[in-house]
Design a protein around this nucleic acid. Structure first.
Lengths: 114, 114
DNA sequence: CTGTATCCACTGCGATACTG
DNA sequence: CAGTATCGCAGTGGATACAG
């Protein structure tokens, strides 16, 4: 089996693409990369549970794709940001996302008519 | 939520990338796209169960990404082949695969040292 | 050869409650 | 605010047996 598959598995996680997209394109999915707070991510990705959000963020952080910064204000502030590595992945994933957007109609049409 | 995410979910399926890669790059993961028989796929993707292989092939066929051809020999012969749509997806996924291969070391190093 | 059907273990994931 | 801990379900996926 191709060794790259292990990474593909991680990348393909259910919420990975969403979080990467949020951090890489801002809240409107169309802007520039910028750091975001935990609560901001939670609000933006309305469908994800707190557990999955934390779990996915931890995994991405461990892989060096995002960085986690704690600011000891009161109450504490935590921001997440794409690393250079994460940024490069985000660029690559945009291609896949563009493909999905471009061919979505085709796929759904074929799915319905089969 | 971005509408393209539904397609991303399908694309990110556990075995989708492997099967697309096999059909798109031949048995050695480095050649040209060509049709393959069911048993050939089963042999090549040693890790996948028969159930998952069939299930994934059906899903991809339904989405118009691969075509299924039955030749009524005895015993029956079935070949699978990427459609034009599937071929375009395969091209896009190669970018992701290349990224994974390129940055694998980085990620694993970071994972180990955290 | 190319599937389909059934059973079953595992785990991904959500809901909820609690902590620093 | 930003998590952690625990429970429980539902879906994923493997093994096996059967069928056209």
């Amino acid at each position: 089996m191709c060794p790259s598959h292990q990474l593909l598995a991680r990348i393909s996680g259910k919420w990975v693409a969403l979080i990467m997209s949020a951090l890489g394109s801002g809240p409107d999915c169309a802007g520039d990369p910028r750091p975001m707070r935990y609560s901001e991510l939670a609000r933006l990705l309305a469908g994800v549970s707190q557990k999955m959000l934390t779990q996915t963020l931890r995994a991405l952080e461990q892989d060096g794709l995002i960085s986690r910064t704690v600011t000891p204000t009161v109450p504490v502030t935590v921001t997440y940001e794409l690393t250079e590595l994460g940024l490069s992945l985000h660029e690559t994933m945009r291609g896949l996302k563009r493909w999905a957007e471009t061919h979505m109609d085709e796929v759904f049409a074929h799915r319905a008519g089969s």
